[in-house]
Simulated assay, not measured.
Amino acid sequence: MAGCDDCCAATNASNDRRWRRALWIALGINAGMFAGEMVAGLAANSQALQADALDFFGDAANYAISLGVAGMALVWRARAALVKGATLGLLGLYVLVTTIWAVWSGALPEAEWMGGVGLLALVANGAVALMLYRFRAGDANMRSVWICSRNDAIGNLAVVLAAAGVFGTGTAWPDLIVAGIMAALGISGGVQIVRQARAELGRSRTVTMQQGRQLM
């Protein structure tokens, strides 16, 4: 059956040694960057850095989930992708809320910290995104990993630009605007992942029903 062959092919791809090795490397990089960038974001009073740190945390958790379901049936990988998509969307909402709150505080972030840490994060995420680029067209689980990495690289570049904006304008608005954009990216990415995961769950149920009819 074509549907069964598709499921088996997707399962084999998700259990590829290169895929698992790439996930372990990405997990280590993101976990380390989360800790470092969160400390730097709090020290620099930068919402954009803190938002980026939360992205690193979300990605580290997502990579761990992906490793846990690698090689499992498509239905389980799609369910894991649903969890990851929801997590990414919730993190985006959290960043959006904290950014709106920061508008009222009026504290000025330290541009030098933002720029230096943002550049380091850009290098880290750029390397991860390049490493995972070959897996971008896989199932919802693989695609979710690529979307997270892509969003983080874009977010890092935006943080660097925000640092330049804060330095040039002497206001917190570039930092807050970038944090808002990163929140929107997180919400949008979460919606994309959830949509694809739901479609794959639907296909999996169809294949299961077809197999059940053949056995009758």
Rank of each mutant, 00 (worst) to 15 (best):
A78Y: 03
G89E: 14
A86T: 14
N141C: 11
M1Y: 06
G138S: 06
A61H: 01
A137P: 08
S149H: 10
D16T: 04
M114T: 09
L120D: 04
G155M: 07
E112S: 14
I187P: 01
G115M: 11
W24D: 13
G41A: 10
A40D: 00
A179N: 00
I193D: 02
Q50G: 15
G138P: 01
D16G: 08
S14D: 13
L82D: 08
R18G: 15
S188H: 14
V207A: 07
E37Q: 15
T98S: 06
T98N: 08
A48C: 10
V69K: 01
W113Q: 11
S66G: 08
A183V: 07
V207Q: 00
A22E: 08
G190H: 08
W113C: 05
R21S: 13
R77I: 07
L54I: 02
A44K: 00
L82K: 09
G106T: 02
W19Q: 05
D55G: 15
A35T: 14
G85T: 08
R18H: 09
I181F: 13
A53F: 03
N45I: 09
G71N: 09
V103H: 03
S188E: 10
I65G: 05
T11I: 07
L67C: 13
A153H: 03
Q196C: 05
S144A: 15
R18F: 00
I29N: 03
A162I: 04
W101H: 11
A102Y: 02
T99A: 01
G202Y: 11
R77A: 04
A199Q: 10
A64H: 06
A172L: 04
R198S: 11
A80D: 05
V160Y: 03
L54F: 14
D139Q: 04
A60Q: 03
Y94D: 04
L132V: 11
G168M: 14
W24T: 08
W113R: 07
N62I: 02
M72I: 00
